[in-house]
């Protein structure tokens, strides 16, 4: 028996908005530790990894591991029936072929009860090696969303360059080119600030497809800040924390010079 109750139901709604356009369906693995889901887009350029730890939920029970094979368009349609301040409960039997979703309104005068049919998804799980990142950059998530949107008007590639105390985003194309530089700001504890941490002082610069970065920024509402981790010739990691007990992470393969 699996049952998980999320007081902040909006977390699930927002997570689905950040997932459904990249991966059409996925296995949501439920264990005593929490719920995790990972999947790649069809062209194997971006990997999406969702982690919702058990203490994100105010009630969490998972007697035996349960796999919920979910179609994300359907799941999203059902979640759209939930208000942002609804309490959402997920329930499933062992070896389930359906999942029960319960939405309770904040003032408890409305409850909605949905059953979603599960699908068999044979999806290999990828091992993500630990990587020493040359640079870890934190920027306000809305700022990053705006930069990706603005620069993608110039072309299909966005170059992210990090050097001491500064991160630069640039794009070039037929109409011209653009470069946006963010300086590390003073007190980095405030959510609205920029922080740039470098492993060594060697600058690094990588190119990425702007289309995917714009998919990732659909998760912006999950967190005030977004973390970018770069390492030469390695995938970019774009992370949105979900409170202190969860995250939605994206791994994007770089564009390699000829």
């Amino acid at each position: 028996m699996f049952e998980a109750r999320l007081l902040q139901g909006s977390i699930l709604k927002k997570a689905l908005e950040g997932i459904r356009e990249l991966i059409t369906s996925g296995n949501w693995e439920c264990s005593s530790a929490g719920i995790s889901m990972q999947g790649m887009d069809p062209s194997h350029v971006a990997l999406t990894v969702l982690m919702l730890q058990n203490d994100l939920f105010d009630q969490f029970r998972c007697d035996r591991n349960v796999t919920l094979g979910l179609n994300h368009a359907t799941f999203s349609k059902i979640l759209k029936c939930a208000a942002n301040d609804d309490i959402i409960t997920l329930k499933a039997e062992d070896q389930p072929d359906e999942c029960n979703l319960l939405f309770q309104s904040a003032n408890d005068d409305k409850t909605s009860d949905f059953i979603i049919k599960l699908t068999d998804i044979d999806q290999e799980t990828l091992g993500i090696p630990d990587t020493e990142y040359a640079a870890t950059v934190k920027v306000p998530s809305v700022e990053f969303q705006r930069i990706c949107r603005d620069l993608s008007q110039f072309g299909d590639t966005i170059i992210i360059s990090v050097k001491k105390g500064c991160v630069e985003f640039s794009g070039t194309g037929e109409i011209g080119s653009a470069k946006i530089a963010l300086k590390e700001s003073g007190n980095v504890d405030d959510d609205e600030k920029v922080s740039v941490e470098m492993d060594k002082d060697t600058p690094c610069s990588l190119s990425f497809a702007s289309r995917y970065l714009n998919y990732f920024t659909k998760a912006t509402s999950l967190s005030d800040t977004v973390t970018l981790q770069l390492c030469p010739e390695h995938p970019l990691v774009v992370s949105y924390d979900i409170g202190d007990n969860g995250s939605l992470k994206y791994y994007l393969a770089p564009k390699i010079e000829e």
């Binding site: 790649m40 350029v45 990828l126 190119s207 791994y251 393969a253």
Partner: peptide
């Protein structure tokens, strides 16, 4: 800006 690489060259299937 070069060609798009694939994650398959970075991540191993478990």
């Amino acid at each position: 800006h070069g060609h798009q690489s694939s994650l398959d060259s970075f991540f191993r299937k478990k």
